[in-house]
Amino acid sequence: MTDSTASLDPVDAEREGITVVPLKLVIGASTFTEGVDATSDDVASALKEFVPVSTSRPTPDEFGAVYERLAAEGFDAVVSVHLSAEISGTFDSAQLAAREATIPVMCVDSRQVGIATGFAAGRAARVVREGGDEAAAVGAALAAGESSTVLMYVDTLEYLRRGGRVGAAAALIGSALAVKPLLTLRDGMVEPLERVRTTSKAVARLEVLTVQAAEKAQDGFDIGVQHLANPELAQQVADRLAASLGREQVPVNEVGAVIGAHVGPGMLAVTVTPR
């Protein structure tokens, strides 16, 4: 299992045998379910129009209902892989529900966000498919999260500041110097990595750092580009990375609505997960 912030395509999730629990969004006065009736475009439009947007985790009861459904379907155990507990209470909800489940549930804090969490869940699913037990699946998910490199460009730190995902001082410095911040994940938290003066320089630096991360992966790697309302630039970056890394293509998708609510329009991110 994972949650909707993992950015898994429904077809891929079904193929891998991964159950996805959705998070919620509140846009204005209306509540929506990620992946059901709320899209990234909805969030981007709301943010651009200064409509209040907030997010909420699944409740323990919602997780518990899914665990019991899986038990009823005949599963012996569940490995539940989620976004960083430093960023969201989703992992805590999963743990609370796991204590009451009628089958063993092992909750994994990926310490990551977005497709890095998706890659971690995918590694766990692959271990199970190849005959590994739940402990091996947990180990694979933890290793994937720990070794992943997430590099993110945002137009402004304001949206992350509003949600409490970076300190107010970092947002103030970014605004005052008119810089284009590059961010990363360290110890499960979003942290500033570098400050660059222009978008073009920030994107060029992101590409350099991505290639460096990929070159360190001696046994190969998974890679993905994500964006919010920035498809043209995302595709350009993916094409250049594919050429640099000797790949036919690098997958591109729009980040989920929940993460999008915290990073804002224009966000561009690359994830590299060694195999």
Rank of each mutant, 00 (worst) to 15 (best):
140 A>Q: 00
141 A>S: 02
142 L>T: 05
142 L>W: 06
142 L>V: 09
143 A>E: 10
144 A>H: 00
144 A>V: 06
144 A>Y: 00
144 A>I: 05
145 G>C: 04
145 G>E: 02
146 E>V: 14
147 S>A: 15
147 S>W: 00
148 S>I: 04
148 S>E: 03
149 T>K: 06
149 T>L: 05
151 L>F: 11
152 M>I: 15
152 M>P: 09
153 Y>L: 14
155 D>N: 13
156 T>K: 10
157 L>Q: 06
158 E>Q: 14
158 E>D: 15
158 E>A: 15
158 E>G: 13
159 Y>H: 06
159 Y>C: 00
159 Y>F: 08
159 Y>E: 00
160 L>R: 10
160 L>D: 08
160 L>G: 07
160 L>V: 12
161 R>M: 13
161 R>C: 14
161 R>P: 12
162 R>Y: 10
162 R>G: 07
163 G>M: 02
164 G>T: 07
165 R>P: 03
165 R>S: 03
165 R>E: 03
166 V>F: 04
166 V>G: 02
167 G>N: 09
167 G>E: 04
167 G>R: 05
168 A>N: 10
168 A>E: 12
168 A>Q: 13
168 A>D: 12
168 A>M: 09
170 A>R: 08
170 A>V: 07
172 L>Q: 10
173 I>S: 06
173 I>Y: 07
174 G>F: 09
174 G>V: 11
175 S>W: 11
175 S>R: 15
175 S>C: 14
175 S>V: 15
176 A>F: 15
176 A>D: 12
177 L>D: 13
177 L>Q: 13
178 A>N: 15
178 A>F: 13
179 V>N: 09
179 V>C: 11
179 V>E: 10
179 V>M: 13
179 V>P: 07
180 K>Y: 10
180 K>L: 10
181 P>L: 04
184 T>A: 00
185 L>F: 01
186 R>Q: 10
186 R>W: 03
187 D>E: 10
188 G>C: 00
189 M>L: 12
189 M>K: 14
190 V>I: 15
191 E>V: 11
191 E>T: 06
191 E>P: 03
192 P>F: 11
192 P>G: 06
193 L>N: 06
193 L>R: 14
193 L>H: 12
193 L>V: 02
193 L>Q: 11
194 E>H: 12
196 V>L: 15
197 R>F: 07
197 R>D: 11
197 R>M: 08
198 T>H: 11
199 T>C: 04
200 S>L: 09
200 S>C: 07
201 K>S: 15
202 A>H: 03
204 A>H: 11
204 A>T: 06
205 R>N: 06
205 R>F: 07
206 L>D: 02
206 L>C: 01
207 E>A: 10
208 V>E: 15
208 V>H: 14
209 L>G: 01
209 L>I: 01
211 V>Y: 00
212 Q>M: 07
212 Q>A: 07
212 Q>P: 01
212 Q>H: 08
212 Q>R: 12
213 A>N: 02
213 A>H: 02
214 A>I: 05
214 A>M: 01
215 E>T: 09
216 K>E: 04
216 K>C: 00
216 K>H: 01
217 A>Q: 05
217 A>W: 04
219 D>S: 08
219 D>V: 07
220 G>R: 05
220 G>P: 05
222 D>K: 03
223 I>Q: 03
223 I>D: 03
